[in-house]
Design a protein around this nucleic acid. Structure first.
Lengths: 229, 229
DNA sequence: CATATTACAGACCGGCGGTCGGTCGTCAAG
DNA sequence: CTTGACGACCGACCGCCGGTCTGTAATATG
């Protein structure tokens, strides 16, 4: 009832943060506009002054998270004196490092984000992050080709394939995370590790490198991820 | 108002067919229960006697389509006297043959199924079809390994990678189809063809075959798909 | 100080997925 | 042929959701 006026930018980011929290706690579909405005402390009219729809919020959130993701990658891209393979491994390993450091949070996130009813959330985020990741990957591949160490006919296509491999692991990670703390947990973790190792080998072959050059993740990553906090 | 009683099985399949048509015409989210029951000629109570929810219909539909998909694959799997590479190419080519024969219908389907708001439909269908396709693929890979022509460390993982590559092309196909009849259409078709060719080469290398062995699709497939009816 | 514009408030709406009490057809048992 | 039980079906109804609309308080503009 009291009327509070803030800078549009501040309001927008408050609404975005409220939505981000709720989307990851309860899921996208399960979160209502009323939930968001209650947490952000604004009326419905206020909300629709800043966003055109619920999906608009999701899009803005995806954009923001893509920007954050790119910022993390930029350091690896800008690091001078790194050969292409090293840069690629650093690039692929980034996700792993993040996960091992903040295992519980990431586990919770994976647990939520892959539930049915969160498909839309997951897809939008993945698409947005992929869109900014693709050119970065392409530059690394191009560097490798210029250095004469990667044997690839088409840089863009290979970058897309790497991205696709990464996306395809999400299901496997989700399965493993969902199976954690169950009898099948250990087997799922082992399967995930094996699969990730194979992805590395697949990439080696696509890039024309000896098996074992590309490390998609370090061995044992899955077990580390799934170890109880 | 008149009360019509039918065998549960018949009703179920009538409802499923009504849903299938509407989902592909208007999209999953845009289709309401009322739409479905209107087309099927049954009341709401009747609908909920046969299905627990709207999503339950989708699940049943995905299951049915996965069965149909498997039936198409079975002939290729059972074909005797086919070496592994031939079988794999036949397997991968199946999608292409379908598309070229029924290009307009498939185009329409892709056009609808990849719109936002149909993510759930697409994902469920893809997951269901993938689930039945995976073991079939694995058997082909295993045959190739036994024959000594495929050099793969892990059959299951490679099958999953092939499936992931297939899934990843859907986006590209959707982009191309959506760009058809626009100035960018030709470029999109060319990009799609190039990408599919590269997928073939990627598979060659993963399987330890010389470049050009696996034909993901025939060259020029994209243009054929996008040619006006 | 007047005025135009922006930022917000909250009552309201159509329609959605889903529920519920009741009714009719069907068919086996007596 | 009658009866009764049960599965199939009907449609009014519900809660709530995303979104709209009218109005108003705060702020920028001159």
């Amino acid at each position: 009832m009291p009327r509070i006026v803030k800078h549009p930018q501040e309001r927008r980011s408050e609404l975005l943060e409220a939505a981000r929290g709720l989307f990851f706690e309860r899921g996208y579909e399960a979160t209502t506009i009323n939930d968001i405005i209650a947490r952000a402390g604004i009326s419905k009219g206020g909300f629709y002054h800043h966003f055109a729809s619920k999906e608009d919020v999701l899009e803005a959130l995806a954009e923001a998270m893509a920007r954050e993701s790119l910022a993390q990658l930029q350091a690896i891209l800008d690091e001078p004196g790194l050969d292409a393979l090293g840069r690629l491994n650093a690039f692929l390993g980034r996700a792993r490092r993040l996960k091992v450091e903040q295992a519980p949070a990431i586990r919770a996130m994976f647990y939520v984000i892959f539930r049915p009813g969160n498909l839309v959330l997951y897809h939008r985020l993945n698409a947005a992050v992929g869109a900014v990741t693709l050119p970065a990957l392409a530059r690394i591949i191009a560097q490798g080709r210029e250095e004469g160490v990667f044997d690839v006919p088409d840089v863009q296509a290979v970058a897309e394939i790497i991205l696709a491999l990464g996306t395809s692991t999400h299901d496997a990670v989700a399965r493993a995370v969902n199976a954690a703390d169950t009898p099948e947990g250990e087997a799922a973790a082992a399967a995930l590790d094996e699969r990730l190792r194979m992805h590395g080998i697949a990439l080696d072959r696509i890039l024309g490198l000896p098996d074992g050059s590309v490390r998609f993740v370090e061995p044992g990553f899955a077990k580390a991820l799934m170890a109880p906090a």
